[in-house]
Design a protein around this nucleic acid. Structure first.
Lengths: 154, 154
DNA sequence: TATTGTTATACTCTATAACTATA
DNA sequence: TATAGTTATAGAGTATAACAATA
């Protein structure tokens, strides 16, 4: 299953993360089925904070996909009554997205279920779990620090 | 962007892993585009060891998807001349998959590129990278240990 | 002119169900 | 009867390009 190469620690760690993610795919698909929502609809609903409105473009940004794509995803969530489009007050080209009360209810369950760690992580000792979390926090902080100057520079 | 909840270390670690994975999505799609292969084709080619033949069902298993799905993915890879189907000697229902020399060439580049860690991990110190790798190895070992008895028990 | 979101188009991924050929 | 793979079908995700409304 593994290649006969000697990867760097970072490379191996990344490989393990990818493997961890993919092995949890069936669980994710099953979750989507339970909620009767397609995978990307699940993720979109998770990203939308119940207490604030965001433009479609912001959703496209956090989902890392094209705006034309978001139109369809939002269409389906809106047809289900979980979110709604509202015209923006400042810019009439923009449409703001808002989670409906029903959507808020579904989303709460969803977020709860999606945050359950997979068996591999759950099996670690409490000390190892904290250490893993701390390292990942550090990694994210490093990535954020590297990304922000580029944004504020333009 | 974050919910106002206090997740467990394991839950937070899992959330960070998912975030890490999704933020590397554009990189992955760009890679697929460079190789002119669709995402799942990329993953399938990566999973197929150049030096051994595996049945279609084994590929379906590692990709965590349905056999009917694999038919299409294999069709497209075979049309590109990267892999080929061969009849199994033992069971004539089974078709074995084999990477072609051209596929082997492409796959080597692919594996090289896919194992490059994302910026967040690359930014960690060497010591932190090793620690992260060790924790993830431990997690995987724990998951494997938990999974195997269940298989041998039935 | 530039930007936001939509529509049209085309391709891939996804599963279910029905099918063929083997076992 | 059961299994490996295919085909048919239908829905969803994906990007590109052309478009309308607005800035």
């Amino acid at each position: 299953m593994a290649d006969n190469k000697e990867p760097s620690p970072a490379g191996e760690a990344w490989g393990l993360i990818v493997g961890l993610f993919f092995s949890s795919r069936p669980r994710f698909f099953q979750l989507a089925q339970e909620f009767d929502l397609a995978p990307m609809q699940l993720r979109a609903l998770k990203e939308l904070q119940p207490d604030r409105e965001v433009p479609m473009s912001a959703l496209a940004s956090v989902l890392f996909c094209d705006a034309s794509n978001v139109t369809g995803i939002v269409d389906r969530l809106e047809a289900r009554g979980l979110i709604e489009r509202r015209p923006s007050a400042e810019d009439r080209r923009v449409k703001m997205l808002r989670v409906t009360p029903e959507g808020e209810r579904v989303r709460a369950q969803l977020v709860e279920r999606m945050s359950e760690p997979p068996p591999a992580i759950a099996a670690l000792s409490a000390a190892d779990q904290r250490q893993l979390r701390d390292l990942l926090r550090k990694a994210q902080a490093a990535a954020d620090a590297a990304a922000e100057p580029a944004l504020s520079a333009r």
